[in-house]
């Protein structure tokens, strides 16, 4: 078994979650502030689309944007940046595909923050900026964390869009999901097993972390009261 796919996958997922977390949270905040319902719904739908479309559609569109013979691809090529079939492409694919999970979690987290806290913050004189960083983000933190972990795990498992825009180049763009595909196609079932186990383990650890962190937080804030069990 090669370790390169494991390292590439972790590297891709780590870099892409930083981008996804920042952009997803920021766009969720901006969308929440849009007053006009029709505009908000439209933008919301567009930002959610990668979640429901097959990743190959996203990958196809990304190729269309970043392809070496497309305007943007050519422009980037002139400054010496080639995205397609490069490691960066795995990051772009992971960001696009995992983005809706972050965005939707962040939006839900912002919406459930009681507006009364923001009103109270305004009447005691906090600037809008401080309200975002001292009130809104901390109160939305459990939701943001869960969105971040979901998006990270999704990025780790990204296959379709990655295959289209980044290809399956061993040691460069071959992530674990692609390595599993190649191993199965090549009849190396043993190797596929190993990647499968690693992916399940890593994903489980992060998702477990998610439940653990969110539970602990509510316990601290609600004085000994247990998380309600149904």
């Amino acid at each position: 078994m090669e370790w390169a796919p494991v390292i590439i996958s972790l590297k891709t997922a780590s870099v892409s979650i930083l981008i996804t977390f920042a952009i997803g949270t920021w766009l969720a905040y901006l969308v929440c502030r849009i007053r006009k319902d029709s505009v908000r719904s439209t933008i919301d739908a567009i930002l959610t689309l990668p979640l429901v479309l097959p990743p190959t559609v996203a990958g196809f569109l990304l190729l269309y944007i970043f392809g070496s013979y497309r305007p943007l691809g050519e422009l980037l090529g002139e400054i010496g940046v080639r995205i397609v079939f490069n490691w960066q492409a795995t990051v772009i694919a992971a960001v696009v595909i995992s983005f809706p999970l972050m965005y939707r979690s962040a939006k839900a987290a912002f919406v459930q923050v009681d507006p009364i806290f923001m009103q109270a913050a305004r009447t005691i004189g906090l600037s809008e900026r401080r309200i975002v960083f001292r009130i809104l983000l901390p109160l939305a933190a459990p939701g943001l964390a869960s969105g971040g972990i979901l998006a990270f795990s999704r990025g780790l498992g990204e296959f379709g869009a990655t295959a289209l825009i980044a290809g399956n180049i061993p040691g460069v763009t071959r992530t674990m999901p692609l390595a599993i595909y190649s191993a199965v196609v090549g009849g190396r079932t043993e190797e596929a097993y190993r990647y499968v186990v690693i992916l399940i383990l890593v994903s489980f650890i992060f998702v477990w972390l998610l439940s653990f962190l969110t539970d602990r937080r509510t316990t601290r804030q609600r004085s000994g009261e247990r998380t309600p069990r149904l």
């Binding site: 009681d114 009364i116 806290f117 009103q119 109270a120 913050a121 305004r122 009447t123 005691i124 004189g125 906090l126 600037s127 009130i135 901390p138 109160l139 933190a141 804030q221």
Partner: peptide
Amino acid sequence: VKPQRRGVGYFFQSYALFPH
């Protein structure tokens, strides 16, 4: 004038203390 600059304190029925 923005609420921040009105110099008006508001006591909310539910207190609205920041829980975090």
